[in-house]
Design a protein around this nucleic acid. Structure first.
Lengths: 349, 349
DNA sequence: CGCCGGGGGTTGTACGTATAACGTGGAACT
DNA sequence: AGTTCCACGTTATACGTACAACCCCCGGCG
């Protein structure tokens, strides 16, 4: 007997949750009527008086619909999965916040999934096997992980990912424009020899940065003198920047473009250790505009990515897909935030 | 007719998900047998041959159990809610990671909820109204929010919260010990005049810091010369530290103890702006050991809080509670990470 | 030879909800 | 007076699963 009322060890204070039938009994109507009223589908089918009776009864009993039952009946769960590569970046934390806000407005829940590998070593059948889901929002995923996701056949929205060839709605950041702005900013300050510290991560969002950087430099007199990829951490940014800055003569750049604020922070550290002052001797730019950017001294010039907007737009896109309206790729604008880590290049000492 | 097979606009490729009954038909057995086999409850009730047949059939069809149905039947959802005050701190991101890892090991899911207010302005009926939950892990919650949570009558585990009077399992950090270590560290370096920048947040974890600081100083010759609370941000840490450091003479502290790395970062900024070098003229300590701590120059001496362990222990505690084993309060040790932001006080110039 | 036992399943039911399909009493119209 | 029709509900059912309770057949034993 699995279903005896739990009046045992927990005591009788552990009241079983009231069901719609309990409410019905209490209000003197049938369970169907309760469902109609509480589901706001009663107009013209139930009298105003009865509806009111039902509502007060539900309130008195503290009735909460059983979502498992509702999901089973409806075949929908009003829950979306948000997959992010790493959570310990407040970029994705903000993505989540934005998505959760929109979700809440539409009575949706969000399950956060910090990349399959983090939680379980076996990619295996994806988490959607566990939680009942209506759709998936995947952020900056590697292609093979995406394939796994798509295997579930769930409605999918991709964030900050390659829109080509993806049979899915996509919400992107205008990363290329961001890079153009950063380059333009440095060129305007007078820099001509730039170096790039790309993130050593195989994902669309970083591939775009490299391409846009090259394009933005063509025909401007500026040149990319060095490229040194780094893993996404302060420590590896430090290492990469140190290598780049150890060059001398015309190979030494006067400005460093980093794919991420973490890398930029590492670069600033490297500069200081090499006796270079930022921005007097070296300019540094980042991407994201994390908390970190203003914690540093000098504060970081960076391309701000509207993370919360990305999450919100992603959730909205998913809702559209679920309602049958297919969505075009959406591209959100980014802004360059000039701060203290960039300045004119040092004079030709 | 709500349940016509969806062969319309989406096309016939949108196969309906196979149910246990489909598997049964495919394997030539009854649905009950499928349930027994897949639920690993068949030993001695189903022959090995049949069990194998069922499993291959399930695999061929790509069967995934419908979790809504299972939850309805079982009355349990294998889903826990993790409530955190703010997500845009990688402390809580790590808490989540730890909890999610343990959850995955036990085939549990985790729904993350970044504090009621963030998502919906009305606290109202809590999120547990939305998602079907087996239990709640609440991290550093304000008392009134906790009361709302408890109102749902769900099994509850609290993280980093006041264990007294809480009829719930608690996983705590030995914050008091952390503060003691920080103070001891500074005293050992020779500091005698300390200032405290507490977080202006009404929560247990910060209240403990203040108390432990006072206790750690009694009878040591060290004194707390100033206390200036700040909101949990770099900017407000900067503001508060600026006020503290503007004092002159014996009121000016030689070391700043900050309740959080963000505040410590702000303090370092303040020091630099006032022409004070860290650690030569001023020592600074923080709490958390965020990425931030090693991004700064000098790197931050800080009390490392094992965030991931907290999350993991919290999830384990919840599992214990769900299995009827009540859990004692657990206290995790913390460590002081001495780095570049602390040093001997300046000589009596 | 009749009865027991147990291995190997099956049938039936309940979880709580949403909604299609079906009354039902009475006012209004023919 | 009979028919229509509507306002207001109710009854019945299905979603997919887990498991209690039953069933049947066959070998062994008294």
């Amino acid at each position: 007997m699995p279903r005896t009322r739990q009046d045992g060890p927990t005591g009788p204070s552990e009241r079983a949750r009231p069901t719609s039938r309990d409410v019905a009994r209490h209000a003197g109507v049938s369970q169907a009527t309760v469902s109609l009223v509480l589901g706001e589908k009663w107009h013209g089918r139930v009298s105003v008086r009865t509806a009111e009776t039902v509502r007060t009864a539900a309130h008195q009993l503290g009735y909460r619909p059983n979502l498992a039952a509702r999901s089973l009946r409806l075949g929908r769960t009003r829950t979306a999965l948000l997959v992010v590569p790493v959570l310990n970046s407040d970029f994705f934390a903000h993505v989540h916040t934005g998505a959760a806000r929109v979700a809440a407005e539409h009575d949706f829940g969000i399950v956060l999934y910090p990349s399959p590998e983090v939680v379980s070593p076996t990619p295996g059948p994806f988490h959607s096997a566990r939680s009942a889901l209506d759709g998936v929002i995947a952020s900056s995923m590697a292609p093979e992980a995406l394939a796994v996701l798509r295997g579930d056949g769930l409605p999918l929205v991709m964030l900050d990912s390659d829109p080509r060839g993806a049979q899915a709605a996509t919400v992107n950041l205008d990363i290329a424009d961001g890079m153009r702005r950063a380059v333009r900013h440095l060129l305007d300050l007078g820099h001509r020899r730039l170096a790039h510290i790309p993130a050593a991560v195989d994902s669309w969002t970083f591939a775009v940065r490299a391409r846009a950087l090259a394009e933005a430099l063509t025909g401007t007199g500026g040149a990319l003198v060095r490229t040194e990829p780094a893993a996404l951490s302060v420590a590896d940014g430090l290492r990469a920047a140190t290598r780049v800055l150890s060059a001398t003569g015309p190979d030494r750049p006067t400005a460093l473009i980093c794919d991420d604020d973490l890398l930029a922070a590492g670069a600033c550290k490297a500069a200081r250790r090499l006796g270079l002052r930022v921005p007097t001797d070296l300019s540094v730019t980042g991407f994201d505009d994390l908390d970190l950017a203003t914690a540093l001294e000098p504060e970081l010039t960076t391309v701000r990515l509207p993370a919360e907007d990305v999450g919100a737009a992603g959730m909205r896109a998913l809702l559209s897909v679920l309602e049958g309206r297919s969505t075009a790729t959406e591209v959100l604008p980014v802004t360059l935030i000039p701060r203290g880590s960039t300045g004119p290049p040092p004079g030709p000492s």
